[in-house]
Write a protein that binds this DNA or RNA. Structure first.
Lengths: 257, 257
DNA sequence: AATTTATTCTGTAATTTTTACAGAATAGAG
DNA sequence: CTCTATTCTGTAAAAATTACAGAATAAATT
């Protein structure tokens, strides 16, 4: 959606293609350089950042819409993607948007649009391999950036609440979902997986006990391969044992992990 | 909504009052006689049972809609009520309903209604004190019944999927949500809470270890009061210690509980 | 009053899991 | 060869979980 014509058509007639009153909001998590990050977009003409999102086509399964939106935005397919909450209580969600505001922001003359009506937001979160993402912007957005989850700025609409809920869900599900498998590259060091878990849980985990547990459960395998990290001892690389990992998750990994 | 006139108006013009394309579906859990049950409604003119539900008013917070719908149906207020999933993928959710079918069922002549359009279902589950519910039927439903969760019949639409997901969520959250507190009456026997947990988890728990743990965590308190149960030893009654219970839940009760 | 029946109630020991804790090894730069 | 920053690994104490069964008792019956 790049041309002005397309955008105008979307604003005026999008409800013929998409379900009105419902949006999908995506919290896309990536992990890089020992930091858990999410992808935010800068909305053109608005003074702030927000989550990527989109709408459900009238005859499209909801989960397919979520995948499509993610794919269009990041180029990624077949990543971990899960709905986690629907937002329908915040003042923003209750209030209709003002056409005047919209017109001012985007320089169009619109009188009436399905986009100004009350909208519930279905929150999805994605776990992606940071290095594989290539972000597309569109007419409504003119910049993008990965933000450390500990340093998220004030976001548009109720998106701060959405991010916090996504993080809380991630924390709750860490023992039941293959989070490490999806956020880390295929080969990783003990240090990397350890600090990923520390970041998500927001607390320290003794690395000796952590490693012992991972290995004793057979979740990861030490490879015969190391990474050069400058003038220090080279760490071994590890790899997930997918089957053992999934079995362990079914039981629910216990707390200290 | 009882009179034919009201119903006709709802079918024709309900979308002026309610958000179209979105319904709330409630899985109402109660516990009675050592069995976990859910409340189902018999839909008039349709050969089967389904979940209670309703719609969100245009300017009504979503959670308030869920409470209102529960209150209208059961008379209950201030009970545990939580959204757990959004259903938007099943064939039923994708397909529009046929006006002909509807007309046949309800004997009206309707050509076109917001009710026939594609609808996403927001699943909520409620935990209620079985003994306090008094069910209201309405124009669309002519019977109601509590069904043992192990004996749910084939339901209308995708409601079997909704029920299964609610149960799975209950199971996952049993260590993080005050489930016992909401499903049991104020005073209960050890046996009752024990078999409630066995029922939800679908497995046996050694009652000696179970009781030991509950008491050692200070979650329940033994009262100086017993219940007469005929020609057998009279069990003591217990009561939740709400504060200790909530503290324990914050940590997450561990697996054997 | 004793017996019977069905249910409640409780304790200990073995096992497993979790926690706490720090010093030796080493890659490469200087 | 030395230095620095980082990786790597083991053991013992504490806590939690599991396994397991016989004594107590309410009240109906004899």
């Amino acid at each position: 959606m790049d041309s002005l014509e397309e955008v105008n058509d979307f604003v005026k007639n999008g409800h013929q293609q998409y379900l009105p009153h419902i949006s999908l909001d995506s919290v896309i998590f990536g992990y890089h350089d020992q930091h858990l990050k999410i992808l935010l977009l800068k909305w053109k003409g608005m003074n702030g950042w927000g989550l990527p999102g989109g709408f459900i086509q009238r005859r499209e399964p909801m989960s397919q819409a979520a995948n499509r939106i993610l794919q269009e935005r990041t180029g990624l397919d077949q990543v971990f993607l899960q709905q986690f909450h629907i937002f329908g209580d915040s003042p923003y969600r209750l209030q209709e948007q003002s056409p005047q505001e919209f017109t001012k922001k985007y320089g169009h003359v619109v009188e009436d649009s399905w986009l100004f009506e009350r909208t519930l937001g279905i929150g999805y979160f994605a776990l992606v391999d940071y290095s594989k993402v290539s972000v597309q912007t569109d007419f409504f957005t003119d910049d993008h950036q990965w933000w450390d989850v500990l340093e998220i700025p004030t976001l548009l609409f109720d998106h701060n609440e959405v991010v916090q809920k996504a993080l809380a869900t991630l924390r709750l599900q860490i023992y039941h979902q293959p989070i490490g498998y999806n956020l880390l590259p295929e080969k990783f060091t003990l240090n990397e997986i350890h600090s990923l878990y520390e970041t998500i849980l927001g607390k320290e985990l003794d690395i000796r006990n952590f490693a012992k547990k991972l290995v004793s459960l057979g979740i990861v395998k030490k490879l015969d391969e190391r990474r050069a990290i400058g003038p220090h001892r080279s760490p071994y690389l590890y790899q997930f044992m997918k089957e053992a990992y999934e079995n362990a998750l079914k039981q629910g990994l216990v707390h200290t992990y």
